[in-house]
Amino acid sequence: MWVTERLTSAHDLEKFASGKPVFDEWLRRAALGLDESDQARTFVWSDEGKVIAYYTLVPHEIRWDNRTGKGTSSGPVAAPALLLSTFALDQKLHGKGLGARLMVDALTRSIFVLEKAEAGVIIADAIDADGRAFYEHFGFQPLGLSPFRLAMRARDARSNLTL
């Protein structure tokens, strides 16, 4: 059972190979800088200091597009959200159900962050059809704008994670 920890400069990122170069390069070149400037938080599994899986959460907001509705003078026009912007496991971990475990970790952490929000939403960005199928497998649904941006209500995540 891997333990999730926050990415630090002590982690070795060089060997990480998810099979999708965009995730590998992002981890090596962008993740730590975005964490240090508080724009994103990356959480990792590591094996003797080498990162073998990671995901990133970015503060996010759902905004009502007031051009698309009749318009209301009352009621919320925005909802707090978290964006699961990257999610990847090293290839040697693939096919063992470990992605599902990392997903439980990511959603549990997201719910915790969104705890006080009655209407919190978790957004996921898939980079391709495989990624989208992965997110849909766990209950994310397309938001309708881009086929690669999906959503899950925090309260739905909460009720399905509660055993």
Binding site: I62, R63, D65, T68, G69, K70, S85, A151
Partner: peptide, 14 residues
């Protein structure tokens, strides 16, 4: 990555 603009219908369902 900071926000998602959603339609009236999607906003209601979320």
């Amino acid at each position: 990555s900071h926000h998602t603009l959603v339609s009236d219908e999607n906003f209601r369902s979320l």
